[in-house]
Design a protein around this nucleic acid. Structure first.
Lengths: 193, 193
DNA sequence: GTCTATAAATCGATAGAC
DNA sequence: GTCTATCGATTTATAGAC
């Protein structure tokens, strides 16, 4: 007789953290909420992660790895240079569709906002997200903008940031579509220039 | 003999709130920090504002009024339709230059992030900031994009959001310059279309 | 590893005197 | 209006048994 295996406590905690912290708010979520959602006791959390921040850091690391791999796939699926640069918006769409409910906006920017003096592992993973974004976009912008790749990459970074913040504002209604259009306009400016 | 008047307690509290909450973090700042910075006692804060949230709400209202008036001036100073639409970036530059230290990024988006379920007066002032942004930009985009003003306005909203988030990320180095360039590219796309 | 119970710390808010 | 002192609630983290 096959039984559906319940994931181990560590996994349940990470899933609960990923689901709750970035939708209800990091500081707004007490440890008790995570424990109840994960159906795990206090001692287990502290044995596995040492602290709420330790759990947050690990959840962010997994999130970054997941985001990176989805973005990878979207770049590979894209047909040309422009589509590869704009694939970050496809990835955002896929990433958010994958999680129900999706984060309120961006887990990394939310962490930067809620933990202003984050150092150590939390600061590191937030910085790694920004570095991934910058490095990849610069690389992808190169065939389109040549020597001005850095500028075009920054344009797309801003369009991407703006899309995320649009979720937070609740406007425009379809942030990803708006972001894609804006990024396309940026590419156009380098094409004609 | 002329004496430099110390502002009243209420003003000192509002100044301290404006200076500290949006740079060190809203939830990360204990009430005690505000009291020490304002050189005011506990009882005074609660007599004047009722709660930490009450003080936050009033600080946000003043901030919004100030932002609105600076933006007004920048629109008036602008020479043509495109400059009036892009004046939001001049305003951002002036607004941040006026406050030392400036907020880490945006007081309203930070509030939306840190107080996810904000209702009442705090939710209202955050919504008012978004509404001001949308309404004004739509109005200013009209002479440039006609029937497609809403789209162009959304482009500029995203570029503006992206600029603010860039302060949070610490990249690009000059977010306002990058945002202005991106918004200009968006305008260009409507010009040629 | 997991549980219950509780410690330890933080923080928002109030009381009562002046 | 302002002060000092303190309450009460919340929340993070630990102790000790199983």
């Amino acid at each position: 007789m096959t039984t559906v295996q319940r994931p181990p406590a560590r996994t349940r905690l990470l899933q609960a953290a990923d689901r709750v912290l970035f939708t209800n708010g990091i500081r707004a979520t007490p440890v008790d909420d995570l424990l109840r959602q994960a159906e795990v006791s206090t001692a287990t959390l502290y044995a596995q992660f040492g602290s709420k921040d330790g759990l947050l850091a690990e959840a962010l690391r997994l999130r970054l790895a997941d985001w990176r791999s989805i973005w990878d796939e979207c770049i590979i699926s894209a047909g040309d240079d422009q589509a590869r640069l704009l694939a970050v918006f496809d990835a955002l769409e896929a990433y958010r569709g994958q999680r129900l409910p999706p984060a309120r906006w961006c887990a990394f920017l939310a962490t930067a906002t809620e933990l202003p003096n984050a150092q150590g592992e939390i600061g590191d993973v937030v910085a790694a997200d920004t570095a991934l974004l910058n490095d990849r976009l610069r690389h992808l912008a190169s065939p389109l903008a040549g020597a001005r790749a850095a500028e075009l990459a920054d344009d797309v970074v801003l369009a991407y940031n703006g899309t995320l913040a649009a979720f937070l504002r609740g406007h425009p209604a379809d942030p990803i579509e708006a972001g894609r259009r804006l990024a396309r306009a940026a590419v156009g400016a380098y094409r004609t220039a």
